[in-house]
């Protein structure tokens, strides 16, 4: 078990490293010169040369990468050539704001979707299932920016309690931002819930049809006991992975939703950087996102280990 955990950790670190390589390569090695990219086609050769100097572009890419990754490990992502500020100073407040949305979304979506998924699975093909399945289909089919737009229309314009547009700075205190978190959270939760519900439902149905659940029923156990003790641990296993995947999706989905609400999070920063061609910031965001993704998957794997004794003991003692 310890061995498994260690191997998993090493592979997680490796994945993040590889992602960093990919991002760096994509940004630095794609056709066109980064300095020209940043300054635009009309820049004077002098300005380009100065920026190249500032960004150390005259050194080999491999050396620059190693420098960059060494800095990144310490939380130093270099200087933004657009604002002249350290990338990290831009990044952290935005990241904090996004985490507000992300954490509340995950909390809402995971709870509601597991409950709904289990209900749908248990009431397979009866009305609660039909209703939940129809709702999830709609949830999956409406893009999050549409969901956000509709929420703005419904709640903040017709019922003006919650802010439709956030005017706060990225560095505003958390308490000021809290009301602004509600609508993005709802928009993202709806979409995320839809996906997790479907997975949970399918796996609950599979497990409820399994031989060991039938055996448990034929032992005369009560339905709640059969579901909670026998079925759920196995049924939630595949759901865990889907949750991890969805958290990773969230990092992307949040960009669009933040844009609709003008919420000063990482997505907003990302779009700004794309507009300004602020590549070092984009690079940093990509690596942070990859780290989040890998951490989520790691957590899911460790969770799976808790649910599945087979993984815990490696099935070793018998052979």
């Amino acid at each position: 078990m310890l061995l498994y955990t260690c191997r998993r950790l090493v592979s997680a670190v490796l994945t993040v490293f590889l992602s960093a390589v990919l991002v760096f390569a994509a940004v630095q090695l794609l056709p066109g010169d980064v300095a020209t990219q940043v300054l635009g086609q009309d820049a004077t050769p002098e300005a380009v040369a100065a920026l190249r100097d500032q960004m150390d572009l005259n050194r080999p890419a491999a050396v620059r990468f190693l420098d960059w990754i060494a800095g990144a490990v310490r939380g130093d992502f270099g200087i933004s050539p657009v604002s002249g500020e350290p990338v990290a100073d831009l990044l952290w407040p935005h990241l904090r704001n996004t985490m507000l949305i992300a954490v509340s979304t995950v909390a809402v979506a995971v709870t509601s979707s597991v409950v709904l998924g289990v209900v749908a699975g248990l009431y397979r093909d009866r009305w609660p299932d039909t209703l939940i399945s129809a709702l999830t289909l709609i949830g999956m089919s409406i893009p999050e920016f549409v969901m956000a737009t509709l929420l703005v229309l419904l709640l903040s314009i017709t019922v003006p309690v919650l802010p439709a547009v956030v005017l706060d700075e990225a560095t505003a205190p958390v308490a000021d931002l809290l009301p602004a978190v509600v609508l993005p959270t709802i928009a993202l939760s709806v979409v995320m819930t839809a996906y997790i519900v479907r997975m949970t439902r399918t796996s609950v149905i599979d497990v409820m049809a399994s031989e060991f659940v039938t055996t448990a029923r034929l032992k005369g156990l009560s339905t709640p006991r059969v579901v909670v003790r026998h079925a759920l641990p196995s049924a939630l296993l595949p759901t865990l992975n889907v949750i991890a995947m969805n958290v990773a999706w969230l990092v992307g989905g949040v960009a669009v939703v933040e844009n609709v609400f003008n919420y000063p999070g990482i997505g907003q920063l990302m779009l700004e950087s794309v507009h300004n061609r602020d590549l070092p910031v984009l690079q940093a965001i990509a690596v942070i996102s990859a780290l989040v993704y890998v951490l989520c998957n790691l957590a899911a794997d460790l969770g799976a280990m808790a649910l599945n004794p087979r993984l815990r003991t490696g099935g070793g003692s018998r052979r």
């Binding site: 060991f212 448990a216 034929l218 032992k219 641990p233």
Partner: peptide, 25 residues
């Protein structure tokens, strides 16, 4: 009544115990 029957009166031993035991318990 069905639960009482299964809990007290009739018990089953199935073909493949590897599949009929709950893996997580």
């Amino acid at each position: 009544g069905v639960r009482r029957l299964r809990a007290h009166d009739v018990a089953l031993v199935g073909q493949n115990a590897g599949h009929s035991l709950t893996p997580s318990m």
